[in-house]
Write a protein that binds this DNA or RNA. Structure first.
Length: 478
RNA sequence: AGCGGGAUGGAGGAGAGGUACCUCGGGAGGCUCAUAACCUCCAGACGCCGGUUCGAUUCCGGCUCCCGCAACCA
């Protein structure tokens, strides 16, 4: 079966944060799992590069906006390498092909009568060059960032998308089981839609904001970044031209899954789905929403000094251990809290003393007592329970299953004492040790979607009958 | 106001209609193959009040306390 998978595209106005890493690693585990199961997978990620915030950030940094987005896009690419992601495409919304796709999406929605012009007025802060909602203003109505300025009421003529028209169609879409995971977010979305939808502004006046995709047929306006960015999910497949047939194969005929953060429901499951409906394109089959990561009971922020960046993790623990920590100790959909103390604890308990030590134990026995490597086992170690956990996005449960197996192997060694047996009855001892090595190989295989490099190392060690270097060295804990 | 989530041993987290699991920490013991690792045993928990049920910590209702959301935020 063809399976399409995508993350949301990180917005390139800042360095990658741990939430990006979580989303990438979750999606990568899905992609690798499906490939293992023999499915044809197209896994996409990339960067979202338009909009006011980016233009401002570039100006603030004194950089040309093109150089600025190139730099950050590359940072996200590097993060992908640090996390050993296996995506098949990295789409940038500044690609010419993407521009063409976003404009075609616009034309189609327009042809449906879903785009119209309207005057939008709001409180505008000249300091920020942005409209402000009440929430963003101080009690006396001043901008938080520019308290000396009084926001002015400004009117702007923009194009709007008739989201309201799709209220019933969206309710029908949301009535399908599984279109949103977890289920309670689907109910949340339904309630939200029932509360009434308002049309969205999908363009900006070019004189205010030049950094965006031009609106077809109106050179005074550029697309609001959301309209352009959402289209990436199909432009990455070559839509609309579809010269390689990827769009047909993966989007139209395959199963589509999007991975996103919990703040994305309105954009991914409502706005984007309405856009697809308007353009007569199949809706996304499933959107999985992960939770957020806090630290020390608070949202990570530079001012609090509790930021843990993905590079902090990979530098300290390495790629595979970082993947492990994010997949097993961060809850897939609830918010989670991590601190260095806990990360150190998990690393030490489960990887150093757990998996790493187990590999050393078994391979030392095998290397010492077996003349030749064991044969590669035929039987699949993947159980229905394991597949089911992953397909339900319960990554942590799939990992629990593997670690239960690790523990069972440790227990077996203690119980059956191969190191003693081999001195009493050489053949029986060898045969037991061979069984242990085979089990270790199976554990290695189970780690494939979780810790790709460790999976290879363990399998190679067993097949070479050679104890590897410590997989997870002890590290200095602060 | 409303909508949603959470409340599990000393700490942090899973979990599920019927002996409550994991990591750390505490106590006792074992092993020596292993990265001073591993294994066994012990002490210790399901916020409060009702309801459904043979039985609920798990389902339902109410309460208390925390946390999100409340649309152009990319």
């Amino acid at each position: 079966m063809a399976r399409y998978l995508t993350t949301t595209l990180p917005y390139v106005n800042a360095d990658p944060h741990i939430g990006n890493a979580l989303e990438f690693v979750q999606a990568d585990m899905l992609a690798r799992t499906w490939r293992l199961a023999g499915e044809d997978v197209f896994f996409s990620s990339g960067t979202d590069e338009h909009g006011q915030k980016i233009l401002q950030a570039a100006e603030k940094a004194g950089k040309d906006v093109h150089d600025y987005v190139d730099h950050y896009s590359n940072e996200f690419k590097k993060l992908g390498e640090s996390l050993n992601l296996s995506y098949d495409a990295f789409i940038r919304t500044t690609n010419p092909e993407h521009y063409a796709a976003a404009q075609e999406m616009w034309r189609r929605c327009d042809a449906k009568g879903d785009i119209y012009k309207k005057t939008y007025s709001g409180l505008y802060c000249v300091g920020c060059e942005a409209y402000k909602t009440e929430k963003e203003l101080t009690e006396d109505g001043k901008c938080v960032l520019h308290p000396s300025l009084t926001p002015e009421v400004i009117s702007e003529e923009n194009y709007f998308f008739r989201l309201s028209k799709y209220q019933d169609a969206l309710l029908e879409y949301l009535s399908r089981d599984g279109v949103i995971v977890p289920e309670w977010r689907r109910e949340e979305a339904i309630n939200f839609v029932k509360g009434g939808l308002e049309d969205f502004s999908i363009s900006r006046e070019k004189i205010r904001l030049s950094w965006g995709v031009p609106v077809p047929g109106d050179d005074t306006q550029v697309m609001y970044v959301w309209f352009d960015a959402l289209t990436n999910y199909i432009s990455t497949l070559g839509w609309p031209g579809d010269a390689d047939g990827l769009f047909k194969k993966f989007w139209e005929e395959g199963t589509t899954v999007q991975v996103a953060g919990k703040d994305q429901v309105r954009f991914q499951s409502l706005m984007w789905q309405a856009m697809l409906m308007s353009a007569d394109i199949k809706n996304t089959d499933q959107v999985f929403y992960h939770g957020f990561i806090n630290s020390g009971g608070q949202r990570m922020s530079k001012s609090l000094g509790n930021v843990i960046s993905p590079y902090d993790l990979t530098d300290k623990y390495g790629t595979d251990a970082t993947r492990y920590l994010l997949l097993r100790h961060v809850h897939p959909v609830e918010d989670s809290d991590i601190t260095w103390e806990r990360l150190d604890e998990w690393y030490l308990a489960n990887l150093v003393n757990g998996l790493g030590n187990l590999v050393a134990r078994v391979m030392k026995l095998a290397e010492t007592h077996l003349e030749e490597p064991v044969a590669r086992p035929e039987a699949s170690p993947f159980t229905d329970e394991y597949w089911a956990a992953i397909n339900a996005f319960n990554f942590h449960q799939a990992l629990d299953l593997v670690w239960a197996r690790n523990q069972a192997l440790d227990e077996r060694i203690t119980r059956e004492e191969p190191f003693k047996l081999v001195k009493i009855d050489v053949e029986a001892g060898k045969s037991l040790i061979a069984e242990l090595a085979v089990e270790l190989y199976q554990i290695g295989r189970l780690l494939n979607p979780i810790m790709p490099a460790t999976n290879e190392l363990i399998k190679a060690a067993v097949l070479a009958n050679k104890k590897p270097e410590n997989l997870f060295p002890r590290i200095e804990t602060a």
